[in-house]
């Protein structure tokens, strides 16, 4: 699927990175613990999280991820949005909870 499909499936708001919505993605991971993302993730392109600080964007950047989805209706500070924009990372915000958001993407074909 594309990031545009993620937006539609999660009824998400686009915070930045509109120009990258047609990028193809195949896998995702969900975590609030960035150390675990750095330890266990391999080639996942989407990160779903409830954590809002700039280190979420930096972690995604180190892992070459393309898109971050903030769950539970959370929105980061403008500083975080600007950082993601400068790195070409798409930021989305959805009202859905982490488990539900992951489940929807998984059942629609996104792998782990």
């Amino acid at each position: 699927m594309t990031i545009r499909d993620v937006v539609r499936l999660l009824d998400a708001e686009i915070l930045c990175g509109e120009e990258h919505l047609d990028t193809e993605i195949h896998t995702a991971c969900g975590s609030d613990m960035m150390s675990d993302v750095l330890a266990y993730v391999k080639d996942q392109s989407v990160l779903l999280t409830g954590l809002l600080n700039p280190q979420v964007v930096r972690t995604a950047e180190m892992m070459d991820m393309l898109c971050i989805v903030f769950v539970r209706g959370k929105r980061p500070e403008q500083e975080v949005i600007d950082l993601a924009r400068s790195k070409g990372i798409v930021l989305l915000s959805t009202e859905k909870r982490l488990f539900v958001a992951c489940g929807i993407l998984y059942t629609n074909g996104l792998g782990g």
Partner: peptide, 15 residues
């Protein structure tokens, strides 16, 4: 609460 401190830092560096 910032997403670190899981005790994975040094093991990750080694990995």
């Amino acid at each position: 609460s910032l997403g670190f401190g899981a005790g994975m830092g040094l093991p990750n560096m080694k990995k």
